[in-house]
Design a protein around this nucleic acid. Sequence first.
DNA 1: ACTCCTAAAGAGTTTTTTATCCAGTTTACG
DNA 2: CGTAAACTGGATAAAAAACTCTTTAGGAGT
Lengths: 151, 151
Amino acid sequence: MVLSRTSQYAVQALIYIATQPPGEPVLNRDIAERLSVPAAYLAKILQNLCKHGILDSFRGRLGGFCLREGMHKTTLMQVLLLTEGPDFTKSCILGLKECSDATACPLHAKWIPVKKKIISLLTDMSLEDLAKAVLTGKYRLSDLPVSLLPA
Amino acid sequence: MVLSRTSQYAVQALIYIATQPPGEPVLNRDIAERLSVPAAYLAKILQNLCKHGILDSFRGRLGGFCLREGMHKTTLMQVLLLTEGPDFTKSCILGLKECSDATACPLHAKWIPVKKKIISLLTDMSLEDLAKAVLTGKYRLSDLPVSLLPA
DNA sequence: ACTCCTAAAGAGTTTTTTATCCAGTTTACG
DNA sequence: CGTAAACTGGATAAAAAACTCTTTAGGAGT
């Protein structure tokens, strides 16, 4: 039902970065605090997103992480294909390696329409959309109550 | 997108047992071979299903595992609540502990309808239904090609 | 040039999940 | 009875996922 913790952290962090003024690098430390997530682990995840061209990183003073130019339009699906692996959309609910119309598990027929809904949902949502939603103040990215959020 | 391997094995095994003549205990070894799954590990999973009243087990010669009386109607949801834990249906896609209408993650509104579809799918499918589907010969429970299935 | 602040990189640790092993108990059957 | 076949339960091991630590390197300000 859920994603790996790595994917959750990646998505949360990307949305958070997308809510920040573009061009101003965001510190790993600040993201970790804001999401109450282990900083060293998050750093690894962000590095990986850099390698794959979603983020830019800057070292030294005034350093940090920024969404790369144009990457506000990145969809959740694009992110999850990186963090969950390229077979993310191919998974069979029973774990079969091969589960197509030809060689189907007994759940296949019922599962496919639901899976399509999930995929289109993930493909429709961009970081920009989600960041805007968060900026309305109606939604949260972490379990921290709003009153305890770092300034 | 997927279930734990433990859940996958549990569901596969239960469906397989449901395809076998009721009252005749099925050997753990046979199930493991049929699904090409580690036998010792599967045994633990089956024991757990016994503890929770879905299966009956019999020791000694002519021993094995049977669906408990009336348990052909067991739904996938009932099984997954055991194998994935009682919070299985409560999970937030971003991993928030609290993600309700009041305290929602930015995906919440779009995710809920999909989640409902998943839940009703899992709640509608019984072991009996799935076993019947398998018995038609159109579906498979493991990656083994039909030609290699143990007799 | 020097120093401080940052990410990068790699190795190492801990925890969870998955898988194995073995000695013990139960049962059927000869 | 005795033996082989089957589950049981506890301990253990291996693999994967989550997380940490330490060192290195690069950029900004003085």
